[in-house]
């Protein structure tokens, strides 16, 4: 088990080394967008909306924006990034000639995707603090834990999709038809109660809605029911997701 984790960490390190050398461009891409949204929508729409559930609009969307930042970063890494390494550059094939196995590579990729998510959402948290939009300091460890768990679940899900992807063009559909609805209908920009129940329940089958619920609870309190279900969802979906991603990548690579 320890050796398994060490081997997965070697894959993580490989990605980290590459990231280090181009990190400014990466950071700008991953974090620029959520910041634009936070201020564009939060401050702009905030003039119209004023308050949601007793807090300012920009404060209302802040926890969801963190989840959105984590989601985008993890999904980008485990789609375009992972596909390039797996199929285009044959990095996996090269690594498979070393003691690392497909399971090790997949776990390393998922942990790396989660790391990217944690970096993006962490930077957003720093910005929130800097602008005085955050005060639940005691919850920071749990918030980061939530983002890490969400990053892992999201990375496993997107890596599974990547293993099934015919080519890069497919990712355009994936981002438009899957990730955009995840941004719009998981309670990030408006309370999910405004959606028809049946419609929202579709989104509860994926990690994003749960990550948003947990984060909002940690930011602002409220009912613990949905966040607890969310924690259970993460606990179950993470091992299942890692298992499924390994299986699909193996199927893709080994004829």
């Amino acid at each position: 088990m320890q050796k398994r984790l060490l081997r997965a960490f070697r894959m993580w390190q490989r990605n980290y080394d590459v990231f280090k050398s181009v990190y400014l461009a990466s950071i700008v891409g991953n974090i620029g967008e959520p910041i634009l949204y936070l201020f564009g929508i939060g401050v702009g729409l905030g003039v119209l909306v004023k308050e949601v559930n007793g807090i300012s609009y920009v404060q209302f969307i802040a926890p969801g924006m963190m989840a959105a930042a984590a989601m985008n970063a993890a999904a980008f890494e485990c789609t375009f990034g992972a596909y390039t390494r797996m199929m285009e550059q044959k990095v996996y094939e090269g690594i498979l000639a070393t003691p690392l196995s497909i399971d090790d590579i997949v776990l390393g990729e998922i942990l790396w995707g989660a790391t990217k998510g944690l970096i993006s959402s962490g930077i957003l948290l720093v910005i929130l603090v800097a602008f005085g939009l955050f005060d639940a300091y005691a919850e920071i460890p749990l918030i980061l834990l939530n983002m890490a768990a969400f990053g892992i679940a999201m990375s496993a899900l997107t890596l599974t999709i990547t293993a099934l992807t015919p080519g890069y063009e497919f990712f355009n559909y994936f981002f438009t038809l899957f990730l955009t609805p995840m941004l719009l209908f998981t309670g990030i920009y408006f309370p999910a109660e405004q959606l028809p129940k049946w419609f929202y329940s579709i989104f509860l089958a994926f990690p994003t809605a749960h990550a948003v619920n947990i984060n909002r609870y940690l930011f602002h309190g409220g009912s613990a029911t949905m966040p607890l279900w969310g924690a259970l969802f993460m606990a179950v979906s993470i091992p299942c997701g890692i298992w499924l991603a390994s299986r699909m990548v193996r199927r893709r690579l080994i004829p």
Partner: peptide, 13 residues
């Protein structure tokens, strides 16, 4: 030690 038919060196490094 393996040298594959198609190069799979790490192009990011």
């Amino acid at each position: 030690g393996v040298v594959s038919q198609e190069n799979n060196l790490d192009r990011d490094l």
